[in-house]
Nucleic acid binder design. Structure first.
Lengths: 170, 170
DNA sequence: AGAAGAAATATGAAATTTCATGGATTATGT
DNA sequence: ACATAATCCATGAAATTTCATATTTCTTCT
């Protein structure tokens, strides 16, 4: 796969494909990749009766000892007020538990429950398989490299504003 | 950068840093990368008075001879009803022009206007610089490889029924 | 050709999200 | 220690998005 396929803007016919600005724009490529890869799997999520955000919450809590609302809102890319409401619904359904944090009493710590774990068990396995299928055409080495580069990108660009917002240009 | 930084998230020392499910989940990594990289630039977009969706519409039309509402809704990751409304507002502001398609009269073809082009001129340049800055730590070769792999991923996963999600997530 | 089905877009009602803000707690500075 | 500022979360009002559907225009099939 792929040392060359990307470089030539696609056109199957003699039709000349206009080179759109976005076609080489990293943010666009990431957004499209994210959307398309996620979308494929989201069908399976919704088939279980969970909303996408609910799945994200549970997936984010899986393997964690609990996350605050704030951290969870970053992990799930959901704004804090939205997440607060979602988590409350999920607590009512028994998928998560909310407890005050011992260390900082402003925080609400959210944990996945046994039920939440059980409900997502099959989904997580499907997610792994889906990922394998997605990466399969790239081969082990390239796949690992993609993952590594994405992790590096994230390490270079921390979640919230580590940079002082007042200083960054408007 | 990075042949190693990512792979070893767990230590053998008994005390395991909790390995969250999502930490190795491609869809999560893509969603986070997309969100963080975009977010940095979105501040600049909003400073110009454009909404993110408006910027996406204009960026998508740049270098194009016109796109239908349907295609545009895929390019901008915005659901069709939402996009129809956004485009109508943008037409009122003179940023785009809507015309019926000659070939298929059901379609509405949207083009960027001179004003739309002018309004985004500085932004596109900033976008290019932002991208350079983001990719700089990876070096030319790795950067090119990342772009290529993302394009390959997109080629393998064509856009389909557009189910938007702002910035698609996990 | 004609009918039936599919596709593209627009639109209103309903649902969701976001903004702005408040209350509570912790951090900072003097 | 006290006052002030900053952080964290919840919540209602407002704005936006989504769903469902109507309309118009192709496509396909007989």
């Amino acid at each position: 796969m792929s040392e060359d396929s990307a470089q030539d803007s696609f056109d199957e016919s003699g039709e000349e494909a206009p080179v759109r600005f976005v076609d080489n724009y990293l943010a666009y490529l990431l957004a499209q990749a994210s959307s398309r890869i996620s979308r494929e799997f989201h069908r399976e999520v919704e088939a279980t009766g969970l909303s996408i955000t609910e799945w994200r919450v549970l997936a984010s809590l899986e393997g964690s000892t609990g996350e605050s609302i704030g951290v969870l809102s970053e992990l799930t890319l959901t704004k804090q007020p939205t997440l607060s409401k979602v988590v409350q619904r999920m607590e009512a359904e028994g998928l998560v538990a909310r407890t005050g944090a011992l260390k900082d009493r402003r925080q609400t710590v959210v944990r996945i429950t046994a039920k939440g774990h059980r409900v997502t068990e099959a989904l997580r396995e499907r997610a792994r398989r889906h990922q394998e299928a997605v990466l399969e055409p790239f081969g082990q080495d390239n796949a690992r490299m993609l993952i590594t580069m994405l992790k590096d990108l994230l390490a270079l660009h921390p979640a919230q504003g580590v940079t002082d917002e007042k200083d960054s240009r408007v």
